[in-house]
């Protein structure tokens, strides 16, 4: 500890560049975002002065905004459930079912590196019935695959599927990491005691994974709140407004309707929402790593 006190100044010096960079490039624009939300600035009409909390009162009355929260929650909750379940199953499967097939892990990490815009375009083509090989394949058997992007829940499902595809590898990697921290002695002891593999999974592995699962779920949840390319490319927010999540609605207000200040108010709402959740992520993380 004595050494640490001695070097505290050096530590502070190491921290300084990062703190400065964060202030200039992240905190300043964020302050600007908050500032804008208390004004009336429209790209077309120009500067309308300060309006206090007016934009936030308007939010409370805005049906499209309220509906967008609903959409956002469906996309985020749906996405997180599928990603976490699938990522966990694959991680456990890689360790317990096909431990010798090392190349499998290579297959499962590939979607992780496909840029979001490419993910969106590729899945759009897969969900376009006239183009999709999936539809063509089922047509052979006379089965018509329903068009996902034209129904309210279908379009939400389509985005959840595309997001799951792009993000399960992240969950998988994190759960693989957590699994390697679990001693295999426990498994062996349990299996000698006569427990089946299923019992071992449910009674031993899963409870031990719980902290990691919670953290990855919260982390992914916040990431999904920022959905943009998938909606922008796959549905334009449609059908109707079925996939207009809050972040996308902020984009529409800012760029389509030119209401920069109102868009900023929506972003402030999202930011505060994310702040609450990231508080829990930070706490979960502090518990796990014992920091």
């Amino acid at each position: 500890m004595g050494v640490q006190t001695l070097f505290q100044r050096s530590y502070n010096q190491m921290l300084m560049p990062a703190v400065l960079a964060v202030i200039i490039f992240a905190v300043l624009p964020l302050v600007g975002m908050f500032g804008l939300s208390f004004t009336d600035f429209n790209l077309i009409k120009g500067w309308g002065g300060e309006v206090g909390l007016h934009n936030f009162f308007k939010l409370a009355d805005d049906r499209r905004f309220i509906a967008s929260i609903n959409v956002m929650l469906m996309l985020s909750v749906g996405g997180v459930i599928f990603q976490v379940v699938m990522g966990t199953l694959i991680a456990v499967g890689l360790e317990k079912i096909v431990p010798r097939w090392k190349f499998m892990r290579g297959i499962f990490v590939v979607p992780f590196v496909v840029p979001a815009i490419a993910v969106a375009l590729i899945w759009l083509s897969l969900f376009t019935p006239t183009l999709s090989p999936i539809n063509a394949f089922f047509d052979i058997f006379g089965i018509t695959v329903p068009a996902f992007l034209t129904t309210q829940y279908g379009a939400i499902a389509a985005i959840v599927i595309a997001d799951t595809w792009a993000s399960f590898p992240f969950v998988m990697l994190l759960i693989l990491a957590a699994l390697q921290g679990i001693s295999s002695d426990l498994d062996e002891a349990a299996s000698i005691d006569g427990a089946t593999k299923m019992q071992i999974f449910w009674r031993i592995t899963l409870p031990l994974l719980k902290p990691a699962l919670l953290m990855v779920a919260l982390f992914r949840f916040i990431e999904t709140l920022k959905h943009f390319p998938l909606i922008f490319v796959m549905t334009n927010g449609g059908p109707g407004r079925s996939t207009q999540a809050t972040n996308y609605y902020a984009y529409i207000q800012t760029f389509q309707s030119s209401n920069v200040s109102y868009g900023a108010a929506i972003a402030v709402f999202l930011f505060l929402f994310a702040a609450i959740i990231s508080f829990y992520v930070a706490r979960a993380n502090a518990r796990i790593s014992g920091a």
Binding site: V22, L28, P29, G35, I222, K226, F271, S278, A282
Partner: peptide, 26 residues
């Protein structure tokens, strides 16, 4: 440290739609 970790996450989570306009003006 807890505040620092929360702040870092928060920056990671901030919605780009909101601060991209101030960033643009900057």
């Amino acid at each position: 440290k807890f505040i620092a970790s929360w702040l870092l996450l928060l920056l990671r989570m901030a919605p780009p739609v909101g601060f991209v306009i101030p960033l643009f003006l900057l």
